[in-house]
Design a protein around this nucleic acid. Structure first.
Lengths: 201, 201
DNA sequence: GTTTTAACTGGTCGGCCGGTCAATTATTTG
DNA sequence: CAAATAATTGACCGGCCGACCAGTTAAAAC
């Protein structure tokens, strides 16, 4: 147990830097962030950034790695909690995904910056999630609980993309005439989506 | 007709600058673009950028204005070509929108950078399009051609967001396991979407 | 043809950017 | 305890960034 007041705490410094950097990168993107501003925001000197991370680029990688790791872990946990595939569970999975993004706006923006930069290293993590989700849909299709004439990966893609885009450009979309709240949009999306993936009775 | 070889052509210079700037901004976003690189790419001196546009910021605005104007005009033309609202026309509108984005990848990225920057000036243009589209959906609902228990604006939003996100992060999504081509995804999306917005027979 | 306008050039500038380094000192190692 | 390690500091650097400006000249206005 470490109860002594430390005058030096490299782990804490690293975390403070990662936290401050994530906030700035989420807000402004990689190239608009100035290391001087980051140092000020994190309450450390600029040299410490290079001491702990080597360069601005490597810091950016570290921030992305940590954030996407968190995302991946949370999603995997949600997937493993899910039980037998059926339509009701698909609905609640979409709801859970939507609410996760609502509660983690940073990761949505981080994904967006990353994609625009052409960095698709995170697709490897995503591939596992999407693969597992698609397999889940496939099982439901074979049991006749979801319509079988659509690519399971596309089923996942449709709701992931709709949710992602909703939060990625939320300030923009909310100025559209007639646009409702988060929950109102989710409800209508679910109405359309679930009706679309359910087999005709 | 102007057939003389001009040693000066301000209009042409402006256009060359706007074209080159759009290409760079689309690719790298605002802050990563260097005016020196732009000048080189456009084949003009750096001073001319300031002469014609005043500052990097104002040039960025000019690029966005021109691109969004083109987008707006093209979309308005598509809307006005549309005839009486019904389900078949909604389907072909979604197809047309999807193919427009496929053929204009630049505008998708420009929208994305713009939204991430928190600039929502383009929502004013968008508002007209969305308003017209939603009104169109509302009419179809009243005639019983589309299900009436969903917000018309949300119907527009769902397909716009799905199409936008598909192209915005295309290199990323295409690495997902089982993901199909543009057309395969569009077909499955339409299957789900149209089934979802069509009233139960 | 003369004047006015403005397109265009080359040189320059202050500032800040990411990055480096030597020196200091708290912590760990042995 | 001494020695090695590494966290931290502040001063510093070359380079480039966006911007500016005085001067030149083609084109437009009259």
């Amino acid at each position: 147990m470490n109860t002594t007041v430390q005058t030096r705490d490299p782990e804490r410094t690293r975390t403070r830097l990662l936290d401050a950097a994530e906030a700035l990168f989420v807000d402004q993107g990689f190239s608009a962030v100035r290391l001087s501003a980051l140092a000020r925001s994190a309450g450390v000197t600029k040299s410490l950034i290079h001491h702990h991370f080597g360069s601005k680029e490597k810091l950016w990688e570290a921030v992305k790695d940590r954030a996407f790791e968190r995302y991946f872990t949370a999603q995997m946990a949600m997937l493993e909690e899910a039980g037998e595939p059926d339509a009701a569970l698909l609905r609640s999975s979409v709801e859970a995904y939507f609410h996760f993004l609502r509660d983690n706006p940073g990761v949505v923006r981080l994904f967006a910056w990353t994609h625009l930069e052409g960095d698709d290293t995170c697709s490897e993590l995503d591939a596992k999630l999407v693969g597992a989700g698609a397999e889940w849909v496939r099982q439901a299709q074979q049991r006749g609980l979801l319509r079988g004439d659509v690519n399971p990966t596309h089923v996942i893609a449709v709701f992931v993309m709709a949710c992602t885009q909703w939060f990625e450009a939320k300030p923009h979309h909310q100025q559209w005439p007639g646009m409702g709240s988060d929950e109102a949009f989710l409800a209508d999306f679910l109405t359309i989506f679930m009706e679309g993936v359910t087999p005709r009775g």
